[in-house]
């Protein structure tokens, strides 16, 4: 049984094949429109999400499949105290594949042990979000044509920003990749990402608190939101939420072929005025996410096209 819990489970070859499938879906959507007929995707979202849940649902519908599930824990048996393990085992009796978002880190791994069907981690707390990374990778590939020779700036909440952790893990496997990690002191990348991923793979990186000082070096700028739901203390959130705001003014110092990415939702860390800049890629990421989720569902369900 294959699952996707952590982006590290996918080899470079796996990612290349997923990208090939996604590109083929983009070119030939008609070929894929019925391939998951009579298959059901369960979306178990114990935490609110618009983008990821709808993206999974749209992906399954575009493959001709069906969708069932819930979008908040209050409307699930978790509200009655049921364990993740039991919920997954139950849902595995109804669905062919599960996409799970849960506020507790490691919940999808627990689910994968009992579900009896493939489980996709659709975000577990501040830990991992591998399908967002797949969306990011397709975006990088379509914008840059390659994953090599890139300087990637990650800016904002790098402590709880699970999309950043997964992206760093995924990109650290390619050649001549460098990272510029821009965050307030309190929201720096966790130590284990630096030691186990960056340093273990000899990836050059610098840490900085200044976006302005570094924007000119970057091929990709990956902005993130400071997430209210990750803070135990509201005062800390309010103090840090506006640490970085990308504006057209700041973009003047950037390369002409910079790609500005953001996992969305955005609050105010990217000015709306940036949306019309050709370097803004964050809405392309949304679309790419659906294609990569389609490719992933096909892979995990072992559907041949």
């Amino acid at each position: 049984m294959r699952h996707l819990i952590d982006i590290q489970q996918l080899s470079r070859e796996d990612i290349s094949r997923l990208i090939e499938t996604a590109l083929d879906i983009i070119e030939n959507p008609g070929r894929y429109s019925e391939v998951c007929r009579h298959k059901k995707l369960a979306t178990l979202f114990f935490e609110p999400s618009t983008r990821t849940r709808l993206s999974f649902e749209a992906a399954m519908y575009e493959l001709g499949g069906d969708v069932l599930g819930f979008s908040e824990s209050n409307s699930s048996s978790a509200a009655k105290g049921e364990s993740v393990s039991d919920t997954a085992r139950t849902v595995g009796c109804y669905a062919d594949i599960i996409a799970m978002r849960h506020p507790k880190e490691g919940a999808p791994l627990v689910a994968s042990r009992t579900a009896g069907v493939p489980v996709i981690n659709a975000g577990d707390g501040g830990h991992n979000h591998p399908t967002q990374t797949l969306a990011d990778l397709l975006t990088i590939y379509r914008e840059k044509g390659s994953f090599n020779n890139l300087t990637i700036g990650c800016c904002g909440d790098l402590k709880f920003g699970r999309t950043v952790h997964s992206l760093i893990s995924a990109m650290s496997r390619y050649e001549n990749v460098k990272f510029v990690l821009i965050s307030p002191e309190e929201l720096k990348v966790p130590k284990y990402i630096k030691t186990d991923v960056l340093e273990a793979n000899n990836i050059p990186y610098i840490e900085s608190t200044s976006l302005e000082d570094n924007i000119g070096k970057l091929d990709i700028l990956y902005m993130t939101r400071v997430q209210r739901e990750r803070f135990f203390n509201e005062a800390d959130y309010l103090r840090l939420k506006d640490s970085y705001v990308l504006t057209p003014e700041k973009l003047k110092a950037a390369k002409a072929d910079l790609s500005v990415m953001h996992p969305l939702p955005r609050v105010n860390e990217i000015s709306v005025a940036v949306d019309d800049d050709p370097r803004a890629c964050y809405f392309k990421q949304v679309l790419n996410g659906k294609y990569m989720r389609m490719a992933l569902i096909l892979k995990l369900l072992e559907v041949a096209v």
């Binding site: 507790k104 880190e105 490691g106 627990v110 830990h127 030691t195 186990d196």
Partner: peptide
């Protein structure tokens, strides 16, 4: 880690892997 599933999931065994 209070955010870890092992802090709430019923009878979940505490498992650690050697990372380094």
């Amino acid at each position: 880690n209070p955010r870890c599933i092992s802090s709430v999931e019923q009878e979940l065994r505490q498992e650690f892997r050697l990372a380094d």
